[in-house]
Amino acid sequence: MNVFRILGDVSHLLAMIILLLKIWRSKSCAGISGKSQILFALVFTTRYLDLLTNFISIYNTVMKIIFLACSYTTVYMIYGKYRNTFDSENDSFRLEFLLVPVTGLSFLENYNFTPLEILWTFSIYLESVAILPQLFMISKTGEAETITTHYLFFLGLYRTLYLANWIWRYHTESFYDQIAVVSGVVQTIFYCDFFYLYVTKVLKGKKLSLP
């Protein structure tokens, strides 16, 4: 456990809490992609099945349970409690375009051809593209609420810190997880354009709107 990993996990948690707070306080999930949130719930579910088979640490177990709980609460807020505020019209990304290639790839490129390992691989590949419906929605409507951009910022920060974590682990423990690293790099690249807009607009007090 190193400082990049801890800060990465905290950023990830903070992102999910920011999103829940936004929905809870405004009683609205306008501008949030329900499809991205379903994908994240699927990511955590397929990755954390090892809660039942392996014990890593108290930290690991507790964080996994919190992530699952936050993720399912968010999905419930969007499709249950506040579904009348959900903008399904603009959440029109076709999920099969992500799910079909990700499923295929997880069968082809994995560490072990076992059900749990294939599901873990699926979750890693899926996480790298799960934010695309949200980014697609923002590009379609041309704007995002400032609080939504804070959510995306912390999600992107988490990815960037995990890259630093892997570089650190590579040098200190000779740890190298090729599947996670390649997917992590891909995932981080998706945030670059957003980071640019966040720094040049949101941090200067302007709303994120696309020309």
Binding site: R5, T53, N54, I56, Y111, S174, F175, D177, Q178
Partner: peptide, 10 residues
């Protein structure tokens, strides 16, 4: 140098 299983990251 390869990843260890079980996976220890979140």
């Amino acid at each position: 140098i390869i990843a260890k299983t079980p996976h220890d990251e979140l």
